[in-house]
Design a protein around this nucleic acid. Sequence first.
DNA 1: TCTATTGACATACGCGGCGTATGTATGTGA
DNA 2: TCACATACATACGCCGCGTATGTCAATAGA
Lengths: 208, 208
Amino acid sequence: MVARRRSEMMEETRARLIHAARKAFAEKGYAAASMDDLTAEAGLTRGALYHHFGDKRGLLLAVVNQIDAEMATRARAIGSLADNDWEGLLAEGVAYIEMALEPEVQRIVLLDGPAFLGDPSNWTSQNSCLQATWQKVEALTAQGIIKHVDAEAAARLLNGAALNAALWIAASDDQQDVLVKAIEAFRCLAGGLMEVPASLPASPSRRS
Amino acid sequence: MVARRRSEMMEETRARLIHAARKAFAEKGYAAASMDDLTAEAGLTRGALYHHFGDKRGLLLAVVNQIDAEMATRARAIGSLADNDWEGLLAEGVAYIEMALEPEVQRIVLLDGPAFLGDPSNWTSQNSCLQATWQKVEALTAQGIIKHVDAEAAARLLNGAALNAALWIAASDDQQDVLVKAIEAFRCLAGGLMEVPASLPASPSRRS
DNA sequence: TCTATTGACATACGCGGCGTATGTATGTGA
DNA sequence: TCACATACATACGCCGCGTATGTCAATAGA
């Protein structure tokens, strides 16, 4: 028997509970997931769960934060591979769309999260995914590459568009085909943020 | 006592249940709303509810469809007031953002709907709001005003952006201020769909 | 080293909510 | 008017969450 510290044990207990919760929430949805089943799957009981997370929502919050952090890390990594910040922003958006196709992400973060925890902006104090996009938008604004719109607004709408694209793709029959269309439309929309020569107005056919 | 047909009574019963459900779902959320309380509010019991709607999800579906239809009607009306189809599309989008600020719409259609009924595209067979945007996009494509992207994709991403904007606004402190920013960003994004002279590439600084 | 106290869990209980099975009354067709 | 269907109401059981309580191991102090 390897001697282990108490804190290590606790950490593992928390990890096992979150792991089981991710699985259960993704498969059955938050509402239909039973905490008895969930904890049993992790070799524990509800006692441990309430001790560590307070209530069912607390567990969902912990799960969402974990997944959100993973997503942000992956998105930043993908975005940093791009040739420039603009392509980086697009790449991040596309990465969100693709990540959102995973049942864990979709079911837990995109559907149950907002429904049971409220608006994502209130999760934990910040949403890592949003922050990543937000920062990229600010950088591009400073570089004069995109228009001077509110950075947070742009980031939120971009993420919203990506999210909806993912829900659409996931529910479709030919996911590959739809994915291509969604990405094209996304790049198109994002292009609206780009700065254009002053001679070209953003809106056509303005009356009188 | 006014003599009334059976079908009229039933129709009123359904309407009263849906009305009570809209109120309860909007205030407490779908999960926390009790069907006993809800039906009592309507002067009925759960018996009537299960008779007409099958189960709790069936009631939610009926409520969502009703609100969705109302939203689409309002959006089309607003869109048709615009000077041209392009401004109509933008006006519809802005209208969605503003409508989504209403607790009924936000809580029921945007949060609980997707969580408990699945992707909106599977509701009833079509989502009226999406259809309205879709049609406008197709019309604009035919007129050569916007690029040849997939119309459904564009419509879905636009609606998704509007939806997310609404969630943001609703959770913010200064709703008026945020609403202005969101609308500006929305118009900006939507502008990305517009056709531009071929001499200007959609993407800047392409390498090699 | 022995003890006291804290903390990490397990166990036990009650409440409320959903779904279903059953009952009842009113309206409709022959 | 009689048989039947329909629109509800009532009654019951099961399940799931939250909390109160119990137990055991680990650390702290003397």
